[in-house]
Amino acid sequence: MATEASKGRWLTAGLLAPSSIWFLIMLVMPLVVVAIFSFGERAPAGGYTASFTFEQYANLPARLKAFQNTLTLAPLGTVLTLLVAYPLAYYLAVKAPSRWKLALLVLVIVPFWTSLLIRTYAWIFILGGRGIPTLLEFIGIEGVRLINTPTAVVIGIVYIYLPLMVFPIFVSLEKLDKRLLEASNDLGGSPFRTFLQITLPLSIPGMATGCMLVFILLMGEFLIPAILGGGKVFFIGNALVDLFLQSRNWPFGAAVATTLVIIMLVIVSIYMRLMMRVSAHREDVSIM
């Protein structure tokens, strides 16, 4: 028995080894390198020289605007994407005739087939002077500027991240047992109340996954602010591109990156705890 058990343990360890090593190399090592860099100094010609100083961290307020933008527009973008994605996912999963479902789903993915860069550029024309503002002028609303504003960045975010949010919500709505809705109806719940009491709570896992996915990716976003923000609305991601590639101030870039990781860890763990609380809270919820 004991040998069986230890054999099993070795087998588990053996099977886990490749992925553990992979995880170590791909995820932990770069983080460690970045963390070490962040305590160094910039070499005169750019790059890194070894040292141990907190100077880079003291210098962080210089990039305050990037942090502010990211920490407001990423949550805002996530929430707006959720608000746009939910009705779409709901339509696809519940209302769309079943023979159209697949075709419609493919339509949601189609944008992924062209380059992200090109799609984002397309929005320059839509939001730019000859796009929506011109249309608005036709109906008498003048002087609207969209391109290179936070609004343009948020519109871009919602557009680009929509499929990522739609899919997890679609899945959780699709697998929702339709008989539960009938049961609610049967017990006197109107369609709207049924949605609030059954459909919505049971699609929370899908919404949580979608928000998590979009939010984490948004925290590192740089393409959309670069193109639609026109250098006026920049994210931490843009600061990093600037620091690592243009000004070659690697230690300061590393400090910014490390700070971003720490902020993310804090936010994600709070979020996780919140989600746990929501599902745990339901256990002992009394009659409402």
Partner: peptide
């Protein structure tokens, strides 16, 4: 067709 997100009393 019991509601999985509610306890027995709910």
């Amino acid at each position: 067709a019991l509601f999985p997100h509610m306890n027995v009393a709910d």
